[in-house]
């Protein structure tokens, strides 16, 4: 589908959507948001790109194979879980660098954020794999 309006708009909309997805990811610890939603928003922005141009172009612009992203995302999730084991606590036990900020609404860095980042990457990977496969067939 060739549409001048969409072509032009995507240049502005896409960075906005990607920034918004990161915002959702970071604020998701104690408030609405989180890895899954953020991943969907990011994947949706790439889907929009694929609609504006076409799937091969989107794949090229994305540079890496989305399947690798699934692997990386799951690897990050694993890391966040193993961190608990390394500290001598059960698998996936939560640990934070600055838990005292939780109430004030600041970004709380800890294993849950790492976990969410992994979810984010994996969701982007899965959704894009599906979209690219479906679009190209």
């Amino acid at each position: 589908m060739k549409s001048l309006i969409l072509h032009t708009a995507i240049r502005i909309v896409m960075p906005l959507l990607l920034f918004f997805s990161v915002f959702l990811l970071v604020r998701g610890h104690n408030r609405p948001g989180g890895g899954f939603v953020a991943g969907l928003v990011a994947a949706a922005s790439w889907a929009l790109y694929a609609v504006a141009h076409d799937a091969p172009a989107a794949r090229q612009a994305f540079r890496i194979d989305p399947r690798v992203l699934i692997g990386v995302g799951l690897g990050v999730i694993l890391l966040s879980g193993v961190a608990g084991l390394l500290a001598g606590r059960p698998f996936l036990a939560g640990m934070w660098l600055n838990p005292e900020f939780a109430a004030s609404g600041e970004v709380v860095v800890g294993t849950p954020l790492i976990f969410d980042t992994g979810v984010y990457l994996a969701v982007v990977g899965v959704v894009l794999t599906i979209i690219f496969v479906l679009e190209e067939e």
Partner: peptide, 24 residues
């Protein structure tokens, strides 16, 4: 429910792919 939605999202996506391929 959130978990169930995530799962059904993935499963539905797969099923759509399967239907698409079957149709082809």
């Amino acid at each position: 429910i959130l978990t169930a939605i995530v799962i059904s999202f993935g499963v539905t996506a797969f099923a759509v792919g399967l239907a698409h391929r079957t149709h082809k």
